[in-house]
């Protein structure tokens, strides 16, 4: 197909940034090591070539000042710009929570609608590379807990490009969390302009026996688990919410009404993670349809250890999903 090609998640994000910067002069990019590093931008190559094309003013290398650069993004967004601020690792979000939580999330509401803060805060989540406790966390639930912020987490190159374009065009603060293990995965992505709407889940695999809700690296594991279970005659439906705020709970509930079973899988630690929120909403909307208790397959409640053997224990894997689903089906058939 001439109008489609196989590109990486990192390339897809790069294209979204580039195309939005061409389309809208108020879009600019601010972050650490985004202009020069590597082959010309960004530790994961997302801003590659942008400084060369748009100049160092619109693709601005920042000092290592996470609170400051997010705060600057908020102020710029409130005065007519569309900043895309990058934090190199999601683990640095705690450094920037003040401007995000106290300022960006609340300005519109507490000022009675006078302000709008069209800022995108790009960062990432996820482990798997041996980056240990301070470069592996998945802190999306912290963000989900704060009213006034939207939260997108693309699982594939197609969604990465379409969701980032939606995020940049949105008039609200959007936290956009990518997954480190996905940057160099590939998918067919159209050449022409397209967006992926927020709040619309994507059914990645249809099935009738159990619904699995998962995103990003866990989504890929869920798809592998579904493949395996299909050979045993268990048909797994895999749903990717794509955005946690807004959350397409209707699609999840609709699926559970058909499958009567629900597994939620995330890499973030289990305790007080978003799986609990999704489970509760499903209970509220479809309790009578459930044939089995909802199961969480989530990260262990510990900081991420360095050693590969320990790291593997902490992150949910395909086998964890397979055995959880087998048990669930066996107990409720």
């Amino acid at each position: 197909m001439p109008d489609e090609r196989l590109i990486t998640y990192s390339n897809a994000l790069n294209e979204a940034l580039r195309e939005e910067m061409v389309r809208d002069k108020s879009v600019f990019v601010l972050g650490e090591e985004i202009g020069v590093w590597g082959d010309g931008g960004g530790v994961f190559g997302v801003t590659k070539g942008l400084a060369k094309e748009f100049g160092r003013s619109r693709v601005r290398d920042s000092p290592i000042s996470e609170e400051g650069i997010v705060a600057v993004g908020v102020g710029a967004a409130a005065t007519g710009m569309r900043p895309v601020v990058e934090l190199m690792y999601g683990d640095f979000l705690p450094l920037a929570m003040e401007p995000l939580v106290n300022q960006a999330a609340k300005m519109r509401y507490m000022f009675g609608g006078q302000a709008q803060v069209p800022m995108v805060l790009r960062s990432n989540v996820g482990a798997g590379g041996g980056k240990a406790a301070q470069h592996s966390q998945s802190l999306e639930t912290w963000i989900m807990h704060v009213p006034g912020i939207k939260l997108a987490m693309p699982s594939s190159p197609y969604d990465a490009k379409g969701l980032l374009k939606t995020a940049i065009r949105d008039n609200n603060p959007v936290v956009f969390l990518e997954h480190k293990l996905l940057y160099f995965t590939k998918e067919v992505v159209p050449r022409e302009d397209y967006t992926v709407p927020f709040g619309v889940a994507r059914i990645r695999r249809p099935g009738k026996d159990v619904t699995v809700v998962a995103m990003q690296a866990m989504l890929n594991k869920a798809l592998l688990a579904a493949e395996k279970l299909a050979q045993e005659g268990i048909e797994v439906e895999v749903i990717d919410p794509r955005t946690l705020v807004p959350l397409d709970i209707e699609s999840i509930v609709e699926s559970v009404r058909r499958t009567n079973r629900l597994v939620i899988c995330h890499e973030a630690v289990e305790r007080a993670g978003w799986a609990g929120e999704v489970a509760m909403q499903v209970i509220e909307h479809a309790f009578d349809f459930l044939d089995a208790p909802i199961v969480r397959v989530c990260g262990k409640n510990v900081p991420m250890p360095y050693s590969a053997s320990l790291e593997n224990m902490v992150i949910p894997n395909e086998e964890d999903l397979v055995s959880a689903i087998r048990q669930m089906i066996a107990a409720s058939r």
């Binding site: 600057v72 908020v74 102020g75 710029a76 710009m81 401007p99 106290n102 300022q103 300005m107 000022f111």
Partner: peptide, 20 residues
Amino acid sequence: LGANGIVGGGIGIATGAALS
């Protein structure tokens, strides 16, 4: 652009407005 309940909270907003 707003009073602020966080001591120093306006500093970042001002700097961002100035960048804008």
